[in-house]
Nucleic acid binder design. Structure first.
Lengths: 232, 232
DNA sequence: CATTATTATTTTGTATACCAAATAATAAAT
DNA sequence: ATTTATTATTTGGTATACAAAATAATAATG
């Protein structure tokens, strides 16, 4: 966060083109997704600001941004907290994400270039190669990259942004869910079907498989919650 | 915006449960939707803050919120501006809104109470009664209320919020589009089909008609843009 | 010892102050 | 008169200051 040192171009860094608030939001978002900031944990303003070497003003700006994204909740006169969504809430998020990816699949059939298709196909191959031995985190990241690439191929900026935000809110449970390697086979089957749908530019099929794929995830996260409740 | 006077309960108003930033965001959002703040117009911070009787701090908070909603764009060292979306951007928004309402129709078939259905049905009847003689603004508001009621019946909070945000960004063009009364007949036909779908809790039909209904709106806004370009 | 009252401290909410970049205005030069 | 240089002013970005509420800590009381 230190803006006073010279940047690579030699210039004095001056005022970065990106506001501090945005950079801080990026940093905090990462910490939340990585689990360094646990759901329900407090984000005290002074402490966090000084830890990042900034004042409370841009930190609060970041918190307001993250609140808008649903990753942080702010109550009056209380420390901001990392959101801790209920199973119901996560289910609701997945329904929306399912609809968004179904739309993405459909639009991608129209808008996707051949190069983009090859990229998506390649990501799926990578995923298949990883299926046997890769770390959960790597497999999960690759899985997410596959879905993001499809959405990106639509060139629909609002869709891409909204999808990204929903992904962030779902990141944690979906990662926990993906640790159950048992699910990898059916995941890969779905992905192959999606790739086939895209190859033939079959909107109906691509859209339907993506929708089903995401709705299946609802069952997976439900079992995650059940296990946690049994443990307690 | 004056918080210093006693509130109706007699207490000193103290710190309102809602942050000033949120209240300001609501006020500015209204002004944008009503067209009092035109697309592309500047929102200078000092001037706007003093006009509202607040300091720049909560005003900036409001601007950051509205930027997240896509209603305002902030560039470094320039005055914040009311977003002025291109036809392409509006088209993209409508595709997403179409997918969201299709999902809403499907979920509403599952989640809607009989009372909620009666309410939706009633809104449609109101709309039909208005079709001949009502003001464009009233007809449009009733049209929007109909769609919002369907989304609300899903009880899916993230869906409701995202749909509301997309509605806000689309408000202006869709209002301009609705001024063409010629479209009212087909609008009402679609609505009646949607009501029938909901009555029979036919997910497939409800979802399909809602999706088509919204995608038709893309053609309507395209002609709005064409006319504007001819005028210039 | 437990429980309530009261005080002290921490923490958020908002306002103000200051700096640097951008724009507007003015002066200088061709 | 037009264009370029330079200065002044405005405006956004960030830090700091202060007020009010919430929490923690301490004292008082049954």
């Amino acid at each position: 966060m230190d803006n006073s040192r010279p940047n690579p171009t030699g210039k004095l860094a001056a005022l970065s083109r990106q506001r501090l608030g945005d950079q801080i939001a990026d940093a905090l978002r990462n910490q939340i997704l990585l689990g360094e900031l646990q759901p329900g944990s407090n984000i005290p303003e002074r402490e966090t600001a000084s830890a990042l070497g900034v004042s409370r003003t841009p930190l609060r700006e970041a918190l307001v941004i993250l609140e808008g994204e649903g990753l942080v909740s702010m109550s009056p006169a209380r420390s901001p907290r990392v959101s801790n969504p209920s199973l119901e809430n996560l289910t609701h998020l997945l329904y929306v994400q399912s609809a968004l990816e179904a739309l993405a699949g459909e639009c991608a059939c129209d808008q996707m270039t051949e190069q983009e298709f090859k990229h998506i196909e390649g990501l799926n191959l990578t995923l298949q190669a990883m299926s046997e031995n890769a770390d959960p985190i790597d497999f999960f990241t690759a899985d997410m990259a596959f879905h993001e690439a499809i959405v990106a191929a639509t060139k629909n900026a609002p869709l891409i942004k909204t999808h990204k935000q929903y992904n962030a809110r779902l990141w944690r449970v979906r990662f926990m869910s993906s640790r159950k390697r048992i699910k990898r086979v059916s995941t890969l089957d779905d992905h192959s079907e999606i790739v086939e749908g895209l190859r033939t530019r079959n909107k109906q099929k691509t859209s339907a498989v993506l929708s089903r794929h995401l709705r299946t995830a609802i069952d997976n996260i439900t079992s995650i919650f059940d296990e946690e409740n049994q443990a307690n």
